[in-house]
């Protein structure tokens, strides 16, 4: 019923192998072969590898520029948007979906004409798991993750990102990534040091 494979345990060396050190010689030839191959290092920071399209890096907000999905158009009338600023509707879905309950801090006010405006959107990235559940939960394609992964800072306060940095990321970085084809890698040449030439079928 269960297909077993009893291991062949060839565990003692014959007399010829023993005296002539054939096991050592085999190991030495393998390392010599590797000595003569090209090394596979990518010399960071001179050469960097671009992350693929689906990479989950620093968060960004897509801006209100006319490319919104139908789900936003349905509630556009209730919100006060500016062209070039974030299209967040303060539905708090990202905050609810996040496994860390205290990571987001979102505040919205009611404008005099009855529409809603988001005034504060802080994320404490020091606690973030970078799992992407918040991006999955956003119903209006506002919250997204870019490919920025070098996020070192000197103080804890600098690790909290606010809505203005996120809009900048969304307008430049994330927008460029969004329009790429859904391929496994973005730049084949960078990956060639490790993989060699891969034959594509398309």
């Amino acid at each position: 019923m269960i297909k077993l494979k009893k291991l062949r345990r060839n565990d003692s060396l014959g007399p010829l192998e023993s005296v002539l050190f054939l096991d050592f010689i085999k190991g030495l030839t393998i390392t010599m072969k590797n000595l003569l191959r090209k090394p596979i290092t990518t010399q960071y920071p001179k050469e960097k590898i671009t992350p693929p399209k689906r990479f989950r890096g620093k968060h960004g907000h897509f801006v209100y520029d006319g490319q919104e999905p139908p789900s936003l158009k349905a509630i556009e009338g209730f919100m006060s948007f500016e062209k070039g600023k974030s299209r967040c509707v303060a539905c708090y879905m990202c905050q609810t979906a996040c496994p860390m309950p205290t990571l987001f801090r979102i505040e919205a006010i009611q404008m005099p004409d009855g529409t809603k405006k988001v005034v504060r959107f802080d994320m404490n990235l020091l606690n973030c798991l970078f799992c992407g559940l918040c991006v999955d939960a956003c119903p209006v394609e506002c919250l997204t993750m870019s490919d920025i992964h070098e996020m070192a800072v000197y103080r804890r306060a600098q690790a909290v990102i606010h809505m203005d940095d996120m809009e900048k990321i969304g307008a430049t970085n994330a927008a460029a990534v969004r329009n790429l084809p859904d391929r496994i890698w973005r730049d084949d040449k960078e990956r060639e040091t490790l993989w060699g030439k891969v034959k594509w079928n398309f």
Binding site: I40, P51, P52, R54, F55, R56, L129, F130, C131, G132, L133, M145, R183, I184, W185, R191, L194, W195
Partner: peptide
Amino acid sequence: EKIMDIIEGNAGFRLTSA
């Protein structure tokens, strides 16, 4: 490294992929 490249291209992260 090769396996993690495959996983990164699909999930977005190399190690904790979700």
